[in-house]
Design a protein around this nucleic acid. Structure first.
Lengths: 248, 248
DNA sequence: TTATTAAGTGACGATGCGTCACTAAAAAAT
DNA sequence: ATTTTTTAGTGACGCATCGTCACTTAATAA
């Protein structure tokens, strides 16, 4: 059964297989329901083999988290190709983040879980570094748009505000909005009235206005821009989302 | 040892005692390190008694979370007593939130953990309702300030934006900023350059400008306002924070 | 004094984690 | 062709933790 040396490709494929199975378990039973024994039960590998890939449950979680961030980064990179103003591109990135969180609710929650110290501390050094690299890739996308906004004069940087700070403000706003309106978190009385897409666009517009990034909210038809996002950038994702909420 | 009927006050006191012990364990060992057995070991009560108060570990976590939200609410209520403009009061609330997160990092993380479905699902109905009530109390404070801003004309509500939406935008922005810059989360290369107090004030100002809430950032000395917060509202808390970071 | 009943106890079965002594089989050495 | 080496893979095991439940304790009622 076991050759002396295993193919690098096979190794990676199996790692993927393990993560996929873990993700399915989490979707069904929640993060707390994830058990190495359950993963083993669903796969033709033994516990020892699983532990050859991941040092512990937490390491597996971080692996899943990274896989998710990788997908987000790819979406961001698509978002910034939007044919429009720099502010529209910025909005596209936020919209991409939201789409991702809706299409992969389990994975979005995972990113929060994986940042928890108890999870992080136990993860491999290697996987933690990988995580930082991925986050930088995310921010790289944002910084590109900010530079182009500055270059075109559409964004007038406020005094004492660096491009990194602008990127961070958009990130944290999007993160907070999505996290608090996330379907798997509970809803308080205010939250039930809130709809993720609408609020995220609102918050983005408020923030971008406050950042002095033109065209301002009242000077542009943003609903039209969103429609174009749906058609030109994220047709597949929007389709999937419809399929997800409509059926049965 | 055991009377037939136990005093309501004693009961509550013991509940507090259990939560306090749990919090200490979490501070030392992280959320994952919390174990009912460890709680039992540190207290003169048996496991069965603990389980008379909390149905499971998760219920205990939610209890801790609620205790924390209660403290935040009290801080908020103090914040809105600030003698100044409505925008200053709004900033005071955000500042209070931040202070709380710095003074009680463990508890701030707990609120995130406790919102996780795996924790929430297992908690008592009673404690979940309690949680919703507490969150409403939080938002109540924000809504009060928003009304006064509207009444005084300092806040000009943008079209299609309700007071609740304004409150939510501030909440989610603060939450996102604090969560991403939280000391117990890991830092990516951008995050290391970011300082919580400075960024939170920046983000608040950007958002409040974008919301069209006067006086605008450039028309007021906000640093001075912050200094007054520290002296007039949160002298104790600032003192504690200094004591916490300085010693050793 | 006895009966009742709420409060408290801790041993126990069940589950999950991560390890390690062992097996299997490919490649290398003879 | 046979033996040796080496690496991948296995799963039973020891340990920790969870939540339960049959039982004890002691205050109140009868």
């Amino acid at each position: 059964m076991s050759p002396k040396v295993i193919d690098e490709t096979t190794l990676h494929a199996r790692e993927e297989e393990i993560m996929q199975t873990a993700l399915e378990i989490i979707s069904e039973l929640g993060v707390a329901g994830l058990t190495i024994d359950k993963v083993v039960a669903r796969l033709p590998y033994s516990k020892g083999t699983i532990y050859n890939h991941f040092t512990c449950k937490e390491d597996l979680l971080t692996g899943l988290c990274n896989r998710s961030v990788e997908n987000v980064a790819a979406l961001f990179e698509r978002a910034i190709t939007y044919d429009g103003s720099s502010r529209e591109k910025m909005l596209a990135v936020g919209y991409a983040y939201m789409l991702h969180s809706q299409l992969n609710p389990t994975e979005f929650m995972l990113v929060i879980s994986a940042k928890t110290p108890s999870v992080r501390e136990k993860s491999t050094e290697k996987r933690q570094e990988e995580h930082l690299e991925l986050e930088n890739r995310l921010l790289g996308g944002l910084l590109k748009v900010i530079s182009s906004g500055l270059a075109s004069g559409e964004l007038n940087l406020l005094p004492h505000l660096s491009p990194a700070q602008v990127a961070f403000s958009l990130w944290s706003m999007s993160f907070g909005t999505i996290a608090l309106l996330h379907e798997s978190l509970d809803r308080c009385s205010v939250r039930v009235e809130m709809q993720l897409e609408r609020e995220l666009i609102n918050h983005s517009n408020i923030l971008l206005d406050g950042l002095n990034w033109q065209p301002f909210t009242q000077d542009h038809n943003w609903q039209e821009t969103i429609e174009r996002f749906k058609k030109e950038l994220f047709a597949d994702e929007v389709q999937q989302l419809r399929a997800q909420s409509a059926p049965t």
